[in-house]
Design a protein around this nucleic acid. Structure first.
Length: 276
DNA sequence: CTTTAAACCTGCTGGC
DNA sequence: TGCCAGCAGGTTTAAA
């Protein structure tokens, strides 16, 4: 169940386990890989990167593995040979001397020649990755005010991967909230300060989520929580997302919930008034 | 051009 | 306990 920050952490995890290590064994379960042993046999993983929510595992064979987790795919890394308890369907496993990296459940998997990966139809349409080092607030601002974005509702724009890749449903609610803008507004109707805040927070909140493994609510608004999982943790990850009816941390007004672009969205009517 | 609705894939949860 | 409907942090497609 990943958005950009979670996918980037997965890429980091895979890189730690696989990068520059010999692939000693592999298991190609997914149909699209059945004739692809040559890409893995006797080779190494050169790098693991992500573009939005797509993972790109580059191999020394000159091929790059494209995989997209969608809602349900998941990568697991274990010490080599340690059995893993799961009912999920294994799609792909790469084993180094020390580790096993296994991809479960994902269906969107394909192998590309590295120099042709840009031809992938999904990658071709992506905007800049929100967590890429050269993506900054200025770039987001430029895109917000660009022709194809400025007249669209923020609620729609902030799920569109061609605007900024890696944004997703919880980041949408959180970024709009911290920017004090209403989901129904459009970039062209915001004032200067609002667009600037929005651009800045798009980067800031995404980076915070990456750094904290998915927590966008600043520490000072959260009770001390020991475990990085469980109900208390889940209920205090976000400022507004999944907090319908609960008091806004800034003004105590009940958080609103509705459906926008077929997905849940949350906002504070007091902190995020319409600007039109 | 922009928005909306439905469909698809798989996994998990909650209600009966 | 078992089954099923409904939902999920995603994406594509067609249609309005």
């Amino acid at each position: 169940m990943p958005e950009g920050p979670e996918i980037r952490q997965t890429a980091d995890m895979l890189a730690r386990a696989l990068q520059h290590r010999d692939i000693e064994a592999f298991d190609l379960q997914h149909a699209s890989l059945s004739q692809s042993s040559h890409a893995f046999e006797g080779h190494q993983v050169t790098s693991v990167d992500c573009r939005g929510k797509a993972l790109l595992t580059q191999l020394s064979s000159g091929f790059t593995l494209y995989s997209h987790n969608q809602l349900y795919g998941v990568w697991k890394v274990t010490p080599r040979g340690k059995p893993l308890k799961t009912n999920r369907r294994l799609r792909l496993a790469l084993h180094t001397q020390e580790h096993s990296a296994m991809l479960f459940s994902a269906t969107d998997i394909s192998l590309w020649k590295t120099d042709e990966i840009e031809e992938h139809p999904f990658l071709k349409r992506l905007g800049p990755d929100v967590l890429a080092t050269n993506t900054d607030a200025e770039l987001v601002l430029t895109r917000l005010l660009g022709k194809s974005c400025r007249n669209r509702q923020l609620s729609s724009l902030y799920l569109d991967q061609s605007f900024i890749a890696g944004l997703g449903n919880y980041l949408r609610s959180e970024i709009l909230f911290f920017s004090g803008v209403n989901p129904a507004d459009k970039p062209r109707n915001l004032n200067e300060a609002q667009v600037q805040a929005l651009a800045k927070n798009t980067i800031k909140i995404s980076q915070r989520s990456y750094r904290t493994s998915g927590v966008t609510l600043p520490k000072k608004y959260r009770p001390a929580i020991k475990k990085k999982s469980g109900r208390a943790y889940e209920q205090n990850r976000f400022a507004v997302f999944a907090r319908a009816g609960k008091p806004c941390h800034f003004c105590a007004t009940p958080v609103q919930k509705s459906i926008a672009t077929s997905r849940r969205i949350y906002w504070c009517p007091q902190c995020q008034p319409r600007s039109e």
